[in-house]
Design a protein around this nucleic acid. Sequence first.
DNA 1: TGATCATATGCCGATATCGGCATATGATGG
DNA 2: CCATCATATGCCGATATCGGCATATGATCA
Lengths: 122, 122
Amino acid sequence: MPISAYDGEMARSSTTADVFNAIGDARRRRILDVLIGGEKPVGAIVDDLSIPQPQVSKHLRVLSEVGLVTSRAEGRCRLYRLEAARLRPFRDWLAQYEQVLSARLDRVDDYLQELQRQGEQQ
Amino acid sequence: MPISAYDGEMARSSTTADVFNAIGDARRRRILDVLIGGEKPVGAIVDDLSIPQPQVSKHLRVLSEVGLVTSRAEGRCRLYRLEAARLRPFRDWLAQYEQVLSARLDRVDDYLQELQRQGEQQ
DNA sequence: TGATCATATGCCGATATCGGCATATGATGG
DNA sequence: CCATCATATGCCGATATCGGCATATGATCA
């Protein structure tokens, strides 16, 4: 039984179309970071990051394919919005390791208490 | 000024040598998952995941280059261990988005209270 | 309709990646 | 020293990726 909602997708992740792959690129992460500030048109991202517009559009496409962003038309602009909920696979995956860390810290805690008890007995 | 310890590495991440890139590969993630169980020799990973040994070694190399795993020699085996501390960039980066999520929930809360007030006034 | 702004798409070349296979390195035991 | 186990490395081919540039699409306004 799975520890969390993390699926543990088996074989090939078919390159893109995978959240992990999408955030594997630094520029895409920066685009997401910019979108934390809220819905923005492509041009704003271009200005903020000084990345050529075609590249921004392409990265937005990848991000949109995995659902990390959505877009809507507003006049002749296209507004992109962060879909933070789609970070869930990443979050769940990471959560497994948090548990390991806590468990490990607990064990250290137990160990320290053990040392303490031994000290008292001498 | 940075929101968290997340560095926000600027330009090219030079492919590998980037933690996010390292976990972009599903097989590498599975290797890390296996190592949650503790230090293991390469052979154990090979058995657990049914991935050819050379590939496992290569992926371990990538993971080790970014510090996500470390290894030590034990007889003629080489034991690999997960370095949970290196998961910090993930934590820090994700933390930004947790705030967005909470903020959004707060806003929903506000909205519900607003509805409530309006209902009372009628 | 034509000009312009905003964005998307297509093509290119360089480079990287990944899997598969063979083989090298390294340690151990007889 | 040789055989063997455990792991790493090298080479290959197929494919993907990314940036850069030009250009197409699409909407708005005069």
